[in-house]
Design a protein around this nucleic acid. Structure first.
Lengths: 98, 98, 98, 98
DNA sequence: ACACAAAGTTCGCGTC
DNA sequence: GACGCGAACTTTGTGT
């Protein structure tokens, strides 16, 4: 537990260039977690951009993007679940007269 | 269980003005759930609009809306938790030299 | 502009019972915005709870909550849009052989 | 515009193994958009998993994950904006006596 | 078209 | 061990 709940700093002397001294080795681990995460988030963001590009292109080609997303979501789910939900949706719609 | 998982409709004869007949009394219950929910959602939407109005007014008065939201979020939380997190945030920032 | 961007406090003397003195009348307006918003959010939360209760009851009665939500979402949209999307969905599914 | 808004199918003859015939070349483009997106989403999901792993490890090492996320969010923003917001937050808190 | 805000969905947590 | 609760993230809609 590098920085436990009840931690009390003995002093306020830490300055920004002494980071490594805070909590001993812990500061390095912390920095590592942060930087690795930042790198992964950047990659993830790039992928999101790629997906957006594809959708923009699809839209330009005359497709309905929202419907394409629906297709993708359906393909992610178990066919049996999809079927059952669509059946129920039909039943409910009829039940309330839609 | 009005519309159980393995339900098989006996026929496809239901038309929209026979809603009540589908699943017996169940159609009425279903309609009730739906309509009550719709009413509550409308009220909720109205409240969201009211909040938005307040924030617009605050902004006109020169306040920073994002910071007001932070204040509100802080006030929702336990003071002890807020204090602890802010302390940790300080410690971590120093540790990595921010 | 009560607390403009370049504001510099003249001192750090403010204590919690002098709130009204900070920025003159502005502190009262700020408090008002915050408290009104908090009240509205509480009401909104109560409504969310009511909706959840309805869904819990619906589930107990054997309904599929997810499908009920779908129904509500469909009813919110323009019938023409719903129809068009469902048609497109069908077309796309056939196109890719689903 | 492969599947334009006002499209009327001339018939309902399409069957699932004739996908390519629907809208001519368009079906292939559609399939391509979908499959490319699915691949990218899978990669994105993997990255999310990696981030989650890091956070789990950080937690095991005694760090407060929520605070680490705060750090990352702060680092994403312009230092000047961060500084200004923190200053305003202080001012507002004092103003309402927190 | 971009960014912000709202909604829905999913994941982890505490409880029973 | 499962269920419900709450928080986090993702996606959708809106307003500039």
């Amino acid at each position: 537990m590098p920085f436990p709940k009840n931690h009390e700093d003995e002093n306020g002397q830490f300055t920004s260039d002494e980071g490594a001294a805070v909590g001993g080795i812990a500061a390095d681990r912390l920095r590592s977690y942060i930087e690795r995460t930042e790198r992964l988030e950047e990659e993830r963001k790039a992928l999101s951009g790629d997906i957006k590009d594809i959708m923009t292109e699809a839209k330009s080609a005359g497709f309905n993007v929202k419907v394409i997303r629906q297709i993708i979501n359906i393909r992610k789910r178990e066919p049996a679940d999809v079927e059952e939900q669509e059946t129920l949706l039909d039943i409910y719609r009829r039940a309330i007269g839609m």
